[in-house]
């Protein structure tokens, strides 16, 4: 399973590298009038990335397929953390720092623990958000978005 995930990652990286190289080639000729153009270096880097990707894919395909333990439990908590951060950023300005951060911290505490003692966790979230606000806004002079402007 791990090997499959790794190969998928390498294929995605290869696709990105090819896309990068194609974009670099579209910038024009790498050498013009005896000097290097802005396309030269990206073409070099894109080519090298494709080479390294190809080596790694061949290595991964040649390697004996690894099978993980049958009872291996796959955790997707990291995906939920990414989702939480994404929506937090979306809500940051419209909802303001306090509401968006409160919900975000509460969600993360739940993701890293169990669905129990919710009131205590809500209080801890509020305290964290308040302390962080004082630290950013009062101590370091950073203006954070709030509902009151």
């Amino acid at each position: 399973m791990l090997l499959n995930r790794q190969i998928i990652f390498l294929y995605v990286t290869l696709a990105v590298s090819v896309g990068y190289l194609v974009t670099a080639l579209s910038l024009g000729s790498p050498i013009a009038e005896g000097t290097l153009t802005p396309a030269f270096f990206p073409i070099l880097v894109g080519g090298a990335a494709i080479l390294f990707c190809s080596i790694l894919i061949v290595q991964a395909l040649r390697a004996a397929p690894e099978t993980g333990p049958a009872d291996e439990v796959r955790s997707y908590a990291h995906v939920w953390v990414v989702v939480a951060i994404f929506f937090y950023i979306l809500a940051f300005k419209p909802l303001g720092y306090f509401l968006s951060s409160g919900l975000f911290v509460f969600a993360l505490i739940l993701l890293f623990s169990k669905f129990e003692k919710m009131v205590l966790k809500a209080i801890i979230s509020a305290v964290i958000v308040g302390v962080a606000f004082v630290m950013f806004q009062q101590l370091f002079g950073v203006r954070l978005p709030t509902q009151w402007g």
């Binding site: 937090y88 975000f104 505490i109 739940l110 993701l111 623990s113 964290i128």
Partner: peptide, 20 residues
């Protein structure tokens, strides 16, 4: 130290920090 609180704090500081 409680890991749930710790990582929530780290995530908050990281995301708000990148806004600064």
């Amino acid at each position: 130290v409680r890991k749930d609180v710790l990582y929530a704090v780290i995530a908050l500081l990281a995301v708000v920090g990148s806004y600064v």
